[in-house]
Nucleic acid binder design. Structure first.
Lengths: 108, 108
DNA sequence: GGAGGATATATCCACAGTGGCTATAGTTGA
DNA sequence: TCAACTATAGCCACTGTGGATATATCCTCC
C-alpha cells in the first residue's frame, strides 16, 4: 500500500524526469485541479522515496537557457516502476469491487 | 478522499447489514487475505462514520438462534452510498492514469 | 530599478488515520 | 478444563498529510 502522494509522484515521473515544483503542477493538471499536493508533503515524500530507492536524482540538466539552477530533477527507478505497478493492480481490484457493489458503472 | 478503511467498510455493507467483526472478515475474504483490518481501526472508523451519517446502527436482528447478543449491526445510508460512489469515481480515474502511464494493462 | 508575484526547495507543527496491544467477556470445540 | 475464536472497545505510538513559515531566485510590469 503506497501512500497516495507517493503514487501520484510516480505517475508524474512515469513519462519524464521532473523537478519537485513541476511534479506538483503535473498532479494538479492530471486531476483537473482536484489534488494540489502541498509542498510539505511533496518534499518529504521525495526524501522518503529517495531513501527507498523508488526514484533517483539525475545529473542531467536541460539546456542552460531552459534551466533554473534551483531545480532538482528526479527519475523513476525500476523499483519505483514495480511499486507503481503493484499499486495500480491493487487499485484496479478495488475498482472492480466497487463495480460489483454497484458503486461504479459497469465497465462496458 | 475517503480514508481507505472507510471505503472498505462501505463496500462490506453494500449488499447486506453486517456487524463489526463480520466486516473485518468480509474485507479479508474480498481481498484474499491481503487486507486484515485491525480491530482498533474498524471500531474507530465505525464511530466516525456514524457521526458523519455514512452508516446507521440497525435495530433489526437475525432470528434468535442465529444471533449473538454482543453484535451491533450497521447499515449503509444514502449519504454513505453517495460517498462510496464519489470515491469509486476517483479511484477509477486513478486507474485510468495508471494505464496511460503504462503501470497497468490496457483495459482490453 | 523597484515591487510584486510566481518559481523553487526545505523545515516545522499539528492533526488524522492506522496498526498493534490490552481489556473484557461470551461462545465453541477438543 | 482449557484454548481458540467471536465480539466490542480503548490506548499508545507511528506515518502521512496540510498548512504555515523561511529563504532565495526568477520574471514581468510599471
Amino acid at each position: 500500500m503506497l501512500p497516495p502522494a507517493t503514487f501520484h509522484i510516480l505517475l508524474a515521473l512515469a513519462d519524464d524526469d521532473r523537478h519537485g515544483y513541476a511534479i506538483i503542477q503535473d498532479i494538479a493538471a492530471r486531476t483537473g485541479g482536484e489534488l494540489k499536493l502541498s509542498a510539505g508533503t511533496l518534499y518529504r515524500s521525495i526524501q522518503r522515496m529517495l531513501e527507498q530507492g523508488l526514484i533517483t536524482e539525475t545529473r542531467e540538466r536541460p539546456r542552460p537557457e531552459d534551466d533554473d539552477e534551483r531545480r532538482r530533477y528526479y527519475r523513476i527507478t525500476p523499483d519505483g516502476t514495480a511499486a507503481a505497478k503493484a499499486e495500480a493492480r491493487r487499485l484496479g481490484q478495488l475498482v472492480k469491487m466497487a463495480r460489483a457493489a454497484g458503486f461504479a458503472p459497469g465497465k462496458a
